[in-house]
Amino acid sequence: MDNYFRIEEFIDGNLSEEETLKFKNELETNPILFSEFKMRMEVNNAIRDKNFTEFKDLLRTQFKQQSSPTSINFQKDILKTWHLAAASFALIVVVGGLWYILSNKPYSTERLVTKYYKPAKSILQYRSLELNSDDALKEAFNFYQQNDYVNALKYFNSLDNQITAKFYSGICYIELEQFDDALESFEFVINDKDNLFVEQAEWYLGLIYLMNNQKSQALVQFGKIAESSSYYAAQAKEILKYLN
């Protein structure tokens, strides 16, 4: 096994216990190996860090807008990320439900909704037809990215119980205000346990309880998230503050 391959196998957690121990010892004594390892880890983090990319793009967009004031509105429409556009759409869809729950709170409902509900980003952005990929999933994400949730759902649902499809079908159902179906999708993902979408599904489950005016279930759900090491723990605590 060459050194580069060994580093990658270590990063990916594919080495045996004995090989891992040996590799760790070498890392401590071999600066060249350590430097290579560090660089490869950074590359992975750079690919993974979507926050960094989004913020960098936002700043660039801001300068473009400032240097061309007459086209601000036009550019805003075009250049704002899909994420923000989707959040705005979500605002319209769910504002009624959350407003009902939170109307006695002084905190701006608009800010709460934009802050706490955003449809999950597509994990794929198919722009090429050259791949021999799964047609149904490809079609589903194409529609999903166009906010065509009815058609996206048709394709997601055709994939039986595939986890990725199940998770995104849940988001489609939320967007279509079919909250009971959304609950079912997310519960399926959560019960599967061993997949990438569990934390997100738990979070959306809590939001659906809010939208459905099931305050006690929402309290339990966000309480569970707040006490866990979930990515959403801090946001769950904030929601609990408003609910209590």
Partner: peptide, 9 residues
């Protein structure tokens, strides 16, 4: 470095 890595990515 992140910017450079992302450019190559």
């Amino acid at each position: 470095r992140y910017k450079l890595y992302q450019t190559h990515f």
